[in-house]
Design a protein around this nucleic acid. Structure first.
Length: 448
DNA sequence: TCTGGGGTCCTAGGACCC
DNA sequence: TCTGGGGTCCTAGGACCC
């Protein structure tokens, strides 16, 4: 039987901020989404703030009542700002450069504790503990937790189980444990089942809002209820996913372990604007920029794509404004990774859907039909390829990427994505320093 | 005049994840 | 004034093939 651990950074973005400002440890701390739109991370103090104390009119029509402590998450910032201020909350714009670097450090430390690691997200990794001495798994995990905290100041929780779903569940429960670690593999079946009886289905990995409602309606309310069902009948009544979840909870691993990340099948670059966009020339610039970002990612995984989708929308929440949203996909005859060609195609798609007279809030670019560049099918009848597989284009793109990597993003860019950035760039008014990736923003330490 | 059965591929939409 | 971004997998239905 395999044994997996899940290591997860607690309130990761908030913890990254606190790591560099330890004086925040006893204050509520929240981190905002792009554009300072809504709350995407909160330390436990902030999660426990009572939203019901906010004046009703500042929480929209009819007032708002908190359903649970973590309902702080995904609240629009402007609605809860007065409450946050009242509680002396430290509020940060998201600083992905900082979080990505801290993430790498956290994953590197975790990796030292197992032969195999699967990096699952910015703040989570699975470790393969199979073959380690079974009775010591818990102390092994405690060492890991201590080392991460000592080295980079990030608190983590570790859950251990016979499947990924079990490890996830153990991690969820570990956060309530004093030592932040929980090993389900050494537990008596009766103890495990008693534990499962306390876990609501909505807290199981893979069960979201819809499924938990459907399950509950059929009398399956806890993890225990789920494992007591016949897996085949679960598949019939719900889906293969639920069957798999039940098996995994029973300790039968169905989801495999992936050491190296798979290449993306789709690459999206999508962003809300700092202010609504009304002019085509400004929208054009934003779309060009997003293409550049997506194409750079594409080349990083040595891929080419064969379709480009552009999507634009007005703000869905501002219902007083006339609403419009549309998308258009253009296929390419030959696969490419050239920012120049992809920009041309994307702008053509934008032309198709652009309607003047609206206030646009957001645009997205998606590259799809991605294939590996090295295994490309060549077309016998293709004219001399102008962009992909063309040595001149390849050299140009390589140079572009190299310069931007060494000198900073957007050092070199197409003119079409350039001149009026302040008309659409996102707001990040409350951003912290990039303590670990920028020489100008290192932490200053004073000796008195 | 009658008109089966089995299969693949593609796409759109839904549900989920962090 | 102000509400994120980036993915995956599964399923159902239609087109098409033999």
């Amino acid at each position: 039987m395999p044994i997996y651990a899940l290591v997860d950074g607690n309130s990761f973005y908030a913890s990254c901020q606190i790591a560099f400002q330890p004086e925040l440890i006893n204050r509520p701390v929240v981190v905002l989404s792009n554009n300072d739109g809504c709350i995407v991370a909160a330390n436990s103090i902030a999660k426990n703030l009572d939203l019901t104390h906010t004046p009703a009119n500042s929480l929209g029509s009819g007032g708002y009542r908190a359903a649970s402590p973590s309902s702080m998450m995904f609240q629009p910032f402007f609605k809860v700002a007065p409450l946050l201020k009242k509680y002396n909350t430290a509020v940060f714009s998201s600083n992905y450069e900082l979080y990505a670097d801290m993430s790498q450090r956290m994953h590197n430390i975790s990796a030292q504790f197992a032969f195999r690691q699967e990096i699952y997200s910015i703040d989570e990794s699975f470790l393969d503990f199979t073959g380690l001495p079974k009775e010591n798994l818990e102390s092994h995990a405690i060492k890991l937790k201590q080392r991460v905290f000592q080295w980079i100041g990030i608190p983590v929780a570790v859950g251990i189980g016979h499947s990924k779903t079990q490890a996830k569940l153990a991690n969820h429960l570990a956060k309530k444990q004093a030592n932040g670690v929980l090993d389900l593999t050494q537990m008596q079946t009766s103890t495990l089942h008693a534990l499962y009886k306390q876990v609501k289905v909505k807290n199981i990995w893979g069960v979201g809002r819809q499924l938990s409602q459907q399950l509950t309606e059929q009398g399956i309310e806890t993890a225990y209820d789920l494992i007591k069902c016949d897996p085949k009948s679960l598949r019939k009544r719900f889906s293969v996913n639920i069957e798999r979840i039940a098996l995994e909870l029973n300790g039968q691993a169905c989801l495999s372990f992936h050491e190296s990340p798979a290449n993306k099948q789709n690459i999206v670059s999508s962003r809300s604007f700092g202010q609504n966009v009304t002019e085509f020339s400004v929208m054009r610039e934003a779309v060009s920029s997003y293409v550049a970002t997506a194409a750079e990612k594409l080349r990083k995984q040595h891929g080419t794509c064969q379709a480009v989708t552009v999507f634009i929308t007005t703000p869905p929440y501002q219902t007083r404004l006339p609403q419009y949203r549309n998308q258009y996909t253009l296929p390419l005859i030959y696969p490419t990774d050239s920012t120049i060609l992809l920009t041309k195609i994307a702008l053509r798609a934008l032309q198709h859907i652009w309607q003047p007279g609206y206030q646009y809030q957001k645009a997205s670019v998606m590259l799809s039909n991605i294939q590996n560049k090295t295994s490309l099918q060549t077309d016998l009848f293709a004219p001399n390829p102008q962009y992909s597989g063309n040595p001149k284009s390849d050299r140009l793109m390589k140079t572009l990427d190299k310069i931007n990597q060494q000198m900073g993003k957007n050092t070199l860019q197409l003119a079409s994505s350039g001149l009026q950035k302040n008309r659409w760039k996102m707001n990040r008014n409350l951003i912290s320093k990039r303590y670990t990736t920028n020489w100008q923003e290192l932490l200053t330490v004073k000796a008195n």
